[in-house]
Design a binder for these strands. Structure first.
Lengths: 228, 228
DNA sequence: TTCTGCTGTCACGGTCTTGTAACATTAGGT
DNA sequence: ACCTAATGTTACAAGACCGTGACAGCAGAA
């Protein structure tokens, strides 16, 4: 898992309950009592997911969601709405506002965790600890291990994250910029060509298993992981 | 097992029955007739698990559960709810309050014991006294002994807890923060690097048996116990 | 008290990673 | 075949990260 989750909730008890459960599941938490505070946090560091209470003092939850969706930098962050009643009207407005899922109070912690996992799986599969495998290459985030046809593959931290991202977003070309944003982080200043070097290191580590062919170059565009 | 279990139940006969069974299973019991009394007990000594009747005179069971979850010190204590009827409504509300499991009356003592064991195993496998072993390394929580290929291994208290946690959560990487939370407790303030030192002490103690290789470093991430 | 064992912290040194630059090679177009 | 932009590859210095020994504080036993 290891996702950073922003909880925007004005009721301390609920915020505490949620934060506790997130921590148990191995997530990092950021907390905010209101939308203004939340906007501040977001401007500093992008969370991997936002849990957003519908009713907030001041700027409403729905308005906060709209702002996230309006800014290019935050547009892709998954949002789960917390609403008091299962009101159809609210639900529509919430989904309209760009929420990825929505859950009504009272909810069980178990249900909440399940939805978070589901949303992450859909929107940011590299954040889950699901095992990923393709063509004899297997990557296990929980144990932090990679094997090719059963043989262990040694990877540095960056190569590990890079491969994890590529495998969870296979059959798609990613530009160097996209890879830098997704694998290095969005507030990092690194040369684009650095990606090439890490791709090289990744391929070298995969060479003994002949699986380096899965990491492909798309000239003029970027790189792609393909099971083909 | 050797867990301390708080039983909150207003009906004396049932309380007696439960306490008797718990004692048979080797648990310590704390008893309370109502939530107020229970809160008092909890403030004195944290139990490892709470058996909580849904219907209580005065402060209700659900409310009591909420309070446990609201207080940082008691947040992590597992709760099993006892309810009179298998009412879906109650069930949902109970889970919402943060119960880990829930059991309807009438229940067999055997079922109750099974659930207790299951919850302890899920929430805190290092709390059970099941013997853990892997690759010739054997740890017995009950006798507090560790042997490597049959030879005794001398460990300090912290190293023992650390090894116990690692073995009960094998094949997973744990960050220093997670280890501090799980092994030291989440209310302590200790330097992260302290974990390194105890890993070192643990390895040193395991060296004579060559089992120190099971405690592995995952650079940039944390530590892992692996039978490999 | 004195002694002993345990704990947390620090500092030093070694090893692994990382970003960049420089150079080599390749792909595609002309 | 030639040229050029894009990518592959290598080397390296700086820095991050981890292992390790030393040490002081502390608590409990003798």
């Amino acid at each position: 898992m290891a996702a950073t989750i922003l909880v925007v909730e004005d009721e301390p008890a609920i915020q505490e309950l949620i934060a506790y459960n997130l921590k148990q599941a191995g997530h990092q938490t950021l907390r905010a009592d209101n939308a203004e505070q939340a906007l501040n946090l977001v401007s500093n560091a992008l969370p991997d997911l936002v849990l957003l209470d519908w009713m907030l003092p001041g700027l409403s939850g729905i308005e906060f969601a709209r702002r996230l969706r309006a800014d290019k930098r935050t547009r892709t962050v998954p949002i789960i709405m917390l609403t008091a009643r299962s009101d159809e009207q609210d639900k529509l407005a919430g989904l309209d506002g760009g929420a990825d899922d929505y859950i009504t109070k009272p909810f069980s912690p178990r249900e909440l965790m399940a939805r978070i996992k589901a949303v992450l799986r859909r929107r940011a599969p590299e954040m889950t600890d699901d095992v990923v495998q393709a063509s004899g290459l297997k990557l296990d985030p929980a144990s932090h291990r990679v094997t090719g046809h059963g043989n262990p593959v040694e990877l540095g931290p960056t190569e590990f994250r890079l491969l994890h991202f590529l495998m969870t977003h296979a059959e798609r070309v990613h530009s160097r910029t996209q890879l830098l944003d997704q694998v290095w982080g969005d507030h990092v200043f690194v040369e684009e060509r650095t990606v090439d070097v890490h791709i090289r290191r990744l391929r070298k580590a995969l060479e003994p298993t002949e699986l380096d062919r899965l990491v492909q170059t798309v000239r003029g565009t970027g790189y792609r992981f393909s099971a083909g």
